[in-house]
């Protein structure tokens, strides 16, 4: 049995049990998000997918769709709040897009463009987060972590390895590696793991392929994240880290 709700004035069908986010993604409608991924249980932590349902805030990745709901998504008010959330994420880490190999393929950067974020607005934290280059195939660049826990979930639920976890509290929260030394090389992590390709930003990187994709051919050069991520599966940065064939070559 199909039913429907209204998203920014458009009718969206859903099947019972679907969340608002799942139904919207299935209908090709973009609700901004960072910690949500269609293959994993909703996390509800980044709050970017917050919408208004009947005038009340709700995270669309966790709230069930219901017949007759009036959902506000891309309103100026909600996008302004999303912009503030993004600004907080940018200043909490060390995000240097100009020299980051994930630039153009990064969901954080693309979402910031989509929301019209022009400045960081807040003072930078400049946290000290050394990289972990111990693994022969994969580099961990903790400076860019947004604590979405997609790698934690992928490693636990798909790879069955529990390589990653969050530690610390509040502003001290940070990603850690589950080994005695704390180094990735001392875990059973492999470059073929699902966790290796799910990072929406530039933390978990396959080594030695950075910048192989030219400007103009990167995921969000071709279309904005609202179009690329509309169905919730394509265009996610985590799916594009492998080197691709260039336009010319």
């Amino acid at each position: 049995m199909n039913d429907s709700f209204m998203l920014d004035g458009e009718e969206i069908p859903f099947t019972p049990g679907q969340t608002v986010m799942q139904a919207a993604a299935a209908a090709g409608k973009y609700i901004p998000h960072l910690c949500w991924h269609p293959d994993f249980a909703a996390h509800g932590s980044c709050k970017l997918c917050t919408v208004k349902i009947g005038g009340r805030f709700a995270t669309s990745c966790t709230v069930r769709a219901a017949a007759g709901q009036e959902v506000e998504n891309r309103t100026d008010e909600l996008d302004a709040r999303r912009r503030t959330l993004l600004q907080l994420l940018f200043v909490e880490g060390n995000h240097f897009c100009p020299s980051c190999e994930k630039s153009g393929d990064c969901a954080l950067q693309a979402t910031a463009y989509e929301m019209g974020m022009l400045t960081p607005h807040f003072d930078h934290f400049y946290p000290d987060r050394p990289v972990d280059a111990s693994h022969p195939e994969v580099l961990l660049e903790f400076n860019r972590c947004i604590l979405c826990e997609l790698c934690v979930r992928a490693s636990r639920e798909v790879d069955g390895k529990n390589v990653f976890a969050l530690a610390g509290r509040g502003t001290k929260s940070h990603l850690i590696v589950n080994s005695e030394s704390g180094r990735l090389a001392d875990t059973d992590f492999a470059a073929t793991d699902r966790a290796a390709e799910v990072c929406p930003v530039g933390v978990i990187l396959k080594k030695r392929v950075g910048f192989a994709v030219p400007i103009g051919a990167r995921t969000y050069d071709l279309q904005p994240i609202s179009a690329a991520g509309g169905d919730g599966t394509t265009g996610r940065a985590g799916d594009t880290s492998a080197p691709r064939k260039t336009e010319a070559g």
């Binding site: 100009p98 020299s99 190999e101 050394p130 990289v131 280059a133 080594k207 392929v209 950075g210 910048f211």
Partner: peptide, 10 residues
Amino acid sequence: GRPYWEVPVM
């Protein structure tokens, strides 16, 4: 301390 492939861009 940065990965070598980042150097030409940085």
